[in-house]
Design a protein around this nucleic acid. Structure first.
Lengths: 206, 206
DNA sequence: TCAATTACGGACGGATCGTCTCGTTATTCC
DNA sequence: GGAATAACGAGACGATCCGTCCGTAATTGA
């Protein structure tokens, strides 16, 4: 009954060197955070990592997929789910954390991914599943606690509230038409909390 | 005192053929709306228009600038400023119009520009000035009328309200994590109207 | 008439893509 | 031990597209 649970290499041929993968990811992380995803090239990563291009293509199907693996964990680590005791407090903190990430060195990294997924459907699917949906799943307790506290109606749509919160932040982040700062984050959190408290996020009773 | 008001060619050298410019714009419009901005190439436009690449670079500094000129008027023409008599009605109509544009054939055109400006600062400046700011300017009466009707506080921030409205629409449009449909447009308009009516878009009194 | 100037279409060198080949190395199966 | 297999770094390769340069054509002004 020995199934595929054993990580022992049982396939013939030379096994992949784990250091190769680490070197590629490290080089990709450096280039994508320093120069941006658009400027990062597979050839550049290969040169910096001291590997052949084939060793990259053997592991990742595209530049975007590699860059995603190279930076995802670090980005997610900066975005905890707050628990302040009120809906407005949680929404404001969430928004402020996001703005703080965007203003960090390398803060344009997410913008590079949004740009990339507009013309790479495969990467878009990975992005939605492992980034957008994952963060939203982690933020669900904010809404659930607000409902439990009686701050908002029980039927309030969590996805709608999340879109209302993150949407304006991404909007300024991607368009750059107005400052993306702490004051804006607070305003957005306050607005969304007010809208949700008014019951507008629940199906219309009329 | 004859100033530069006369269109007569008075500069030396061969004058530009006006048909060349029209042919380029027509070819660019076709390619950007059919295949997307990322897939459009200057070489492709030149071939389709039957002109040399230099004739394109002589007129536009980049692919994005050309595409922008080729499609801007058509896009703006689909986005009128509604006047329904209520803030919620105006916001809902604005959102619905935008969603309708996004769902049209060629509806990914704007996504291509958002992607492009993430790595083209010059195009980003043009985009902000001639698209984002222009649309916002045209929507100002929505807020002003709502203030005049007493629906929202006089100090309400129009930019904040616009970001709250457009942000969530763009968010679903660019990420594709959830459907961008008429129901969503209505919900967003209703939420933003509720938030603004609550006074959350005005500077905190506390 | 002719020098100066600018537009024209097409040719050109350069960057990067993704694939492929080379000679070598590490591992499995018999 | 030896054949088969697959990963390794290096880089050649054809393809695509970039942005500029080149020779020619059209126009102005002296």
């Amino acid at each position: 009954m020995a199934s595929a649970a054993i990580p022992n290499s049982k396939k013939p041929g030379r096994p992949r060197d784990p250091r190769t993968e680490k070197a590629i990811l490290k080089a990709a992380n450096h280039l994508v955070t320093r120069t941006g995803l658009a400027e990062m090239t597979i050839e550049g990563v290969a040169e910096r990592a001291g590997v052949g291009k084939a060793s990259i293509y053997r592991r990742w199907p595209s530049k975007g997929a590699l860059a995603f693996d190279a930076v995802l964990d670090a980005i997610l680590a900066t975005q905890p789910t707050p628990d302040t005791g009120s809906l407005e407090g949680d929404l404001v903190d969430t928004a402020r954390n996001w703005v703080a990430l965007a203003r960090l060195p390398g803060g344009r990294t997410v913008a590079g991914f949004i740009a990339e997924i507009q013309s790479d459907p495969d990467l878009a699917a990975v992005w939605r599943q492992h980034f957008v949906s994952r963060i939203r799943q982690e933020r669900r307790p904010i809404i659930e606690r607000a409902i439990a506290r009686g701050e908002i109606p029980a039927r309030s749509d969590p996805e709608l509230i999340m879109d209302l919160l993150y949407g304006p932040l991404y909007h300024r982040y991607l368009n750059g038409h107005l400052p993306l700062n702490d004051a804006f984050a607070r305003s957005v959190g306050r607005m969304v909390a007010a809208a949700a408290a008014s019951g507008a996020a629940a199906p219309a009773a009329a």
